[in-house]
Design a protein around this nucleic acid. Structure first.
Lengths: 197, 197
DNA sequence: CTTGCCTATGCAACAAGTTGCATAGAAAGC
DNA sequence: GCTTTCTATGCAACTTGTTGCATAGGCAAG
């Protein structure tokens, strides 16, 4: 399971608590993998019971104690084994594309707001990634030269940036298509319900 | 659940059996949604029991009978409701990106074969999509003009094409990065294991 | 001084997705 | 005749992922 390995990688990059991991999954790791805190706590518990992780109780001032997890040798070995196994190329699960094809049986114009909302979210993600890239890799405060780990983090981030740019351009294409269909439907007799089914 | 709606859309585009749906999910619908035949049969059964679909037994020559499903009014209404609800913008689950970041704690060069394999798969998918585009939308045998449903199918396919092109370009970037790191590691004392952890 | 937010962890129930297996007729190759 | 492949459907068990809720201390705003 890749969540196990995503957690191992994140803890190798920097040990931390379940809560901290959950926030990393909303940020950098979340560029390419999502997980809720529930999933994370459950997997941390299992990995620890399997000996892949070690825990350390860390008392904190002004906030609840946390359990800081670090990767133990068996965890590192398990990650290494996984890295040498081939995996299936990923496939998409894109709800919005289902909606777009479904719009042929409803009113395509009604999707415009939804697509614009997605456009905004992806633009926000792109801006966030670009800020991070400047801060960590390409800006004046970035380390020079980058070490191997940083180069690899950067190439993954470039993938996220490319993905968001591609998605934004595609959503523009979708919007143009929906607008064209709306005006076409407006000209046809019977309005939006006159589409072929 | 989007699988329900993906099945409804596919059956509205053309009624068919579970087996036929499974093959569509390996092809066109599979550009943006995947499902195994197990999932499909289970959902078909549930949607039928809920009244969203109707079944018709179709005897066939030279092969087993099939059950042909069509969308009933309640199914169409359920799809319409879903189309008017907002959905969350999708997020990625990209195992390969986890591996790439994980490679910092192992040997980056060992990933090269894997990345090249993914590159080939995505190139194959791109070629397949381009063939389909020519056949159905842009070639001499394509209908002119396209109706609304075809325009929407085309814009979704263009999304798949853009995704594959973006992915292939990114995998080239990843390969270049891995090659650079390999030669750099070769120059450093201690070889690949001399990476910072 | 109460309400809401942030850190921090977790259980329980449910929904969705995967894997392995089973059945069965017909066609195609050896 | 035997094996493999393709069509066609399905059960059972298991793993993953989601949702709702619960606890609990501290902090900040009003």
């Amino acid at each position: 399971m890749a969540l196990d390995h995503a957690i191992l990688v994140s803890l190798l990059e920097k040990p931390g608590s379940g809560y901290e991991l959950a926030r990393r999954f909303e940020r950098s790791i979340g560029y390419f993998w999502t997980a809720t805190h529930q999933q994370i706590y459950r997997v941390l518990k299992r990995l620890e019971s399997e000996g892949a992780l070690t825990v350390r109780d860390v008392p904190q001032r002004g906030r609840p104690d946390k359990k800081e997890y670090s990767v133990a040798d068996p965890g590192r070995a398990a990650l290494s084994r996984w890295l040498h196994e081939p995996i299936e190329p990923e496939s998409l699960r894109h709800d919005l594309a289902v909606k777009i094809r479904g719009a042929a049986f409803d009113d395509p114009a009604a999707l415009i707001d939804e697509v614009e909302r997605h456009h905004q979210v992806h633009s926000g993600r792109l801006a966030h990634y670009l800020t991070g890239e400047l801060r960590d890799f390409t800006g004046p405060d970035a380390p020079v030269p980058l070490d191997a780990g940083q180069e690899l983090q950067h190439v993954v981030l470039r993938g996220g940036i490319a993905y968001e740019r591609m998605t934004i351009a595609w959503l523009d294409d979708v919007l143009a298509t929906l607008h064209t269909l709306s005006s076409r439907a407006g000209l046809a007799v019977g309005g939006p319900s006159a589409h072929s089914a």
